[in-house]
Amino acid sequence: MNVASGYNFAYLDEQTKRMIRRAILKAVAIPGHQVPFGSREMPLPYGWGTGGIQVTAAVLGRDDVLKVIDQGADDTTNAVSIRRFFARTAGVATTTHTAEATVIQTRHRIPETALRQDQIIVYQVPQPEPLSRLEPSREETRRMHALADYGLMHVKLYEDITRFGHVSISYDYPVMVDGRYLMAPSPIPAFDNPKMDRMAALQLFGAGREKRIYAVPPYTSVRSLDFDDHEFRASRAPHACLLCGATDSYLDEVVIDDQGGRMFVCSDTDHCEGRRDGT
């Protein structure tokens, strides 16, 4: 029992943790494949990160240092709420500094600071099925994954190029994992996709409502789908961060007046602060 009396360490009971841990291990053994799991009803709503929370709860130990970000920032309300949930139910140390964290739970971003091999990043995933917008039936998409039949996605990307001159997907851009499984990287901007490729940290993905867990082991090939004559390009707003001057980070566009005035600042708040502090 723990800090919030009456509940087990990290909220989940041990039986549930074992079930999730077994799913995580199978997910690691089959990189990019979505493993169904008996997702539990959590005290936060579906869509708020219940999959990521269950994965984090199954992984987290007393000595871990947890960082939670949403949209790249530690101070967004849902990141605050999830960090509090684990501070209450597990009593673990938390941090906003990417370098200090051992477990990072994220929604929609990968930190700018390169992750190390002693870290685990847990992605919150709303829709784990990369083919869902092209084929709504999961019975059908499961068959496609079994056969590695991803023609539908290639056709969609090709049609985009014919119509717009480039792929029109700007986030949750589909990737191939180790050359076998098509995978949804979760709704991170396509800018972040290259960070997944051969990342030193273990990447775990939890989709609570859809009841799927998947994983990318360290140093595993993660390739954004593209064509020889239309290579994948990561794009960002063509500006420098107003606060730290970074020209290589992903930027938020902040509206400053009703006359079309804008400023651009780093989406990764920890990275931006670190640059300003000179650390």
């Binding site: 579906y46 971003r109 709303p126 700007s170």
Partner: peptide, 22 residues
């Protein structure tokens, strides 16, 4: 259903930013 419909209230500005650029 209500979770996924209502989660659209959560911040999505990073994705929206990438859509803006596109």
């Amino acid at each position: 259903a209500t979770g996924f419909v209502e989660h659209l209230k959560l911040p999505h500005y990073v994705d929206f930013q990438s859509e803006l650029e596109t």
